[in-house]
Design a binder for these strands. Structure first.
Lengths: 198, 198, 198, 198
DNA sequence: CGGTAATCGAGACGGTACGTCATGTCTTACA
DNA sequence: TGTAAGACATGACGTACCGTCTCGATTACCG
């Protein structure tokens, strides 16, 4: 960014952290559109110019702030011996985290920005979406090695079949995102809606 | 709303339509946050006060405008004789419409508002989500009567399993929302990821 | 300016006056550079946008505000029967007004802007300088008709010879702008520094 | 100022000169308010802190920079044998210098600061005003010794009568500051507007 | 058919946030 | 210690949008 030759006054890490903390706190209080940069600056005890020096837009700041908040709890999926168990141990913590606080509000706002800004969209996906998909992909790899699923299985579709319903409930809110729902999704995705051939 | 006794000058339907058209046109051009009420008023040749008389917020207007735009093409699912065929005939037009224009941009914005406004959220779901779910529900009803699926099938989960992945791709854009993808989702949702019991 | 066809909400004269009053009050308190548009807006109970709608810059506003303040006292020169008496009755009130309050501060600031903005300079002169010169010119006209001064007298030089010293003391402040000084200037300008030819 | 014991790294005279040159160059390009300390620092290849170490304000720097620029041409009034000739040889170079470049712009800005800062005002007058008045005073002294003017002549008023009109045209710009004007001012100041007693 | 009442376009209004810019101070590493 | 680089807190800038308002003009119905 700036300060390439390590010359001049170094960036204040204290200010950086205060900004992220303030932004995260405000984002959990109210909608992104209701959070003003002035408010973030004031709560962080920081100049608005300092925020804009490091984050180009409010959305970019929200992305970083939410990511920091989000990653304080980093789930660690266990190897349960079966794809079903592995998926449950991966998705249940995600669902609990996602619904534990008004994260959906921020995610929706970020998603809105991503619709019009491809660079932002990529950044968003790399932070929030891809890591989870990679974890799930590893589970499917393990299941393939175990022989649980055939080699030709379309993994990317399977990933959408699992995460899609969770995001759907998180964002649309037509029904709650419970542990029970996660189990139902995993079961139905694995076994299918139609009864297996007798 | 107003004018209960039908007294005074009646509401101009011409103005109403011009506003909806202008809003729709602008929403397909740019993000909701980039569309100002002044711009809508100017494009519609209408006073800002006239807009606010009939729509409380920009989001409410966007909801109506998108709905009008969205419903110009109303898919009509055929009875294909099988749940698989029915679902394809229901979901494929939806996916085509959803990805035919930058509707995702508007939907994401409406969804963002819905996160903080329960009344708006209900309105949004009643317009865009529930009708589709009702249609799908009818297909499942038909399948149950046909004996394709058992009586205890959790329909709501199944609905999320089908629409969730579609919304997921529409909103996250990590991969395109193609006919092929719709088919893969339907197949995998119906048959399951795991191979059926031999 | 705007509102050519008398359409739309008419300009609030109340707001206009409140802005001018607030600006004048602040300008008498502190330097123009210390007066912020926010402060004027707040003191006037008015939106900043309303100020900018009618005045392009802070300096233009200051010009209007000072002019209103300045013109509350409008001196009326009497015909005293002699050029000397006429000039005294014209210049003494000017000097008293100019030094009665910190007008020099504002005038210097306006003058500074005028140095870089020809349009503003013209406006400034038309408001503050030309009317006074016109008044003085009339006195000289009367004196010519009386036969006090010859026909070929360079009036414009004479005007500078009278107003120049007054502005000089007002702006440079190397000595006070007293009634006594005005009398001395008038006397010396009329009679000359050198003793008349015996 | 600082560095009384001559300890540590000595002040860079090179930096000092570069700062003054940069400031002078920028001040001749645009108004003082348009000249930022950052711009001066950058043009001088110097740190902003270095400027502030030696000059408390932008105005103080401008004062020094203009003074250096101004004094590159230092007029040397000749003894012409008459007060009229002496004054012309003093004032004509001043007027030429003053109108040769946009010095009026800087002078007006300094004058504006002087209105609110008595210390700065004194400094300004000691640099730009008093030396010229002292020179003129000497001419009047010579004229008194020659018997050209009576002993009781109010010299300070006479000085204002001469410099006042010049500053007036320089700052107000209602008419150009030509050699012709200087001659007219000297003539009219010496001889008076009224015809001498026959 | 004239009065009443709600609508309309136009556009000014108070308010709030925006993103930028300049000021003057500071913190580092180097000279 | 002086310096260049540059980050920092502060605070004003001028713009844009929001949602409300005040006009005069229009258009129905109702008496």
């Amino acid at each position: 960014m700036t300060n390439e030759g390590n010359r001049g006054r170094p960036r204040s890490q204290q200010a950086r952290q205060a900004i992220l903390d303030a932004a995260a706190a405000l984002l959990l209080e109210r909608a992104l559109s209701e959070v003003s940069m002035d408010a973030v600056a004031q709560r962080a005890g920081v100049s608005k110019a300092t925020i804009y020096r490091w984050w180009p837009t409010k959305e970019a700041l929200a992305l970083d702030a939410l990511y920091a908040e989000w990653n304080t709890v980093r789930p660690f999926p266990r190897d349960t011996g079966s794809l079903r168990g592995d998926l449950l141990s991966l998705l249940r913590p995600w669902a609990r985290l996602a619904s534990s606080r008004p994260y959906g509000r921020v995610l929706a706002a970020l998603l809105t920005t991503a619709q019009s800004d491809p660079v932002f969209a990529t950044e968003y996906r790399q932070r929030f979406v891809e890591p989870r998909r990679d974890q799930a992909r590893a589970l499917f790899q393990r299941a393939t090695e175990r022989g649980e699923i055939p080699a030709g299985t379309k993994i990317d579709v399977a990933l959408d079949l699992l995460y899609g319903p969770l995001y759907h409930r998180l964002l649309h809110g037509h029904a709650p995102l419970t542990d029970r729902f996660v189990r139902d999704v995993v079961d139905m995705a694995l076994d299918g809606i139609l009864p297996g051939p007798a």
